[in-house]
Every structure is written in C-alpha cells, then in structure tokens.
C-alpha cells in the first residue's frame, strides 16, 4: 500500500508543478516600480519584489504595453520564474479598471 501511495505521489508531483506552468503567480497592487523591479502589495497582505528584464512582457488586456504604462496603485498579476532566490517576471498583466 505504501508503495502504491508513493508511486501515486511521484506521478502527481510533476502535475502540481505544471499547474502553474512552473511559474509563480503574484497578484496585488503596485507598491513601487523602477526600471528593474516591481514591488507588489499582494492580496494576502505581503510585499513581493519581482525583478523585471528586457524579455518581460507587459500586457494590458489583450494589448502589449511598456513598463511606462504601469503605475503605483495599479492592479497587476505577474507570472514569474524563480532564479537564484529571486522572482523574475515573465509577464506582467496590468488591470484594465481605473483606480
């Protein structure tokens, strides 16, 4: 029985990682933004620092934008990959609602 459970857990583990496509999701409002970092007050009350780079995609609804289109207080959902203990943004989606 233990072997069966172990086998099932080993089979399930890659799917758990796949659930996010290997990316961490950060959801909240922008606390601060610089050319290399976005600080986010997350919906669970924490402060998350996410590094941005040239390859980071910036989106507002279906449209591509630039980093200049993101401001303090904006709602964002960031999909980021963990690299050397830091979160590096793959995509930053900005809220379409006015604030």
């Amino acid at each position: 029985m233990k072997r069966l459970l172990l086998s099932l857990s080993l089979l399930a583990s890659p799917m758990a990682a796949l659930a996010h496509g290997g990316l961490t999701h950060v959801m909240g409002t922008v606390a601060a933004i610089s050319p290399t970092e976005v600080d986010v007050n997350t919906t669970d009350g924490k402060l998350a620092k996410v590094v941005t780079e040239g390859s980071t995609k910036w989106m507002k609804g279906p449209s591509s934008i630039t980093e200049a289109g993101v401001h303090t207080g904006d709602r964002v959902v960031i999909h980021a990959k963990p690299v050397n203990g830091k979160l590096v943004a793959v995509e930053v989606a900005v809220g379409t609602a006015s604030h």
Partner: peptide, 9 residues
C-alpha cells in the same frame, strides 16, 4: 478567472 476578475476591478 480569479486573476481576470481581479484585473477587471
């Protein structure tokens, strides 16, 4: 859906 709802206010 949760993320889209959040982004839409």
């Amino acid at each position: 859906k949760q993320e889209a709802d959040f982004l839409n206010g």
